[in-house]
Amino acid sequence: MTGSGPPAPAHRAALAVLRKDLLLELRTLETVPAMALFAVATLVVFHFGLNRDTLSGQLAAGVLTVTLLFAAMLGTGRLFVAEREQGGFDAFLLAPVDRTAMLFAKVAALLVYLVVLELIAVPAFALLLSPPRLGVALPGVALMLALGDLALAVIGTLVSALAVQTRARDLIGPIVGLPLLIPALIATARGLGPLLDRHGSVSPQGKWVAFLALYDLVGALIAYAVFDFLLED
């Protein structure tokens, strides 16, 4: 008899869900292209709104962070829609797997989306608003963005799972998520600031790296602790 043992190891189920999510995204191209387009459009808006052709320092960091945040919100909002509307939650809950696998899979999927987004949005940012020294400071920028992505992915997944079961999910997701993300956004923007400054340091300040790491850790632990309650019915 199959499937009568204890729950399958979480990573195998998580891989199955992740694989399915990426396959769905490749099939439909619903989320990532929209995120990338939105990011580029936001950069154009910033050019006109600030009336600047080039940006540097903290201003550049702020524009990049906000642009990525907006695009991330789009992707976050769609993360669980197929599960909710096409019975994915039920199918998953009927399987003999650890429920946390869903959390792992969705965080990983959102991380993949964010990295792909940045592979498009950061070059677009460099091209359109030519921040100084982006090339030299790239390792530092990549580190800050990676830590920021993890924060967006963990909190985004948690909030999205919360919002998808509400009547006004398009509204609830952003208004709940944004205040929770503010500390991580402060750290990302402030950490990126000196890196994009002609006279700043090439490596990010330790305090912001440490804080983002702490934020990611706390976020991940809390998400791990409460996620099961969002799947129950």
Binding site: L162, T166, R167, I182, P183, A184, F229, L230
Partner: peptide, 30 residues
């Protein structure tokens, strides 16, 4: 925006726990 009372309570509890835990992180970041 959650109609089922039981789910409403559960989701509100999850939110309250997450919110409560992020209060100190907020103060540190600012």
């Amino acid at each position: 925006s959650i109609e089922d009372p039981e789910r409403q309570s559960r989701y509100a509890a999850v939110f309250a726990i997450v919110g409560g835990a992020f209060v100190p992180l907020n103060f540190i970041a600012v």
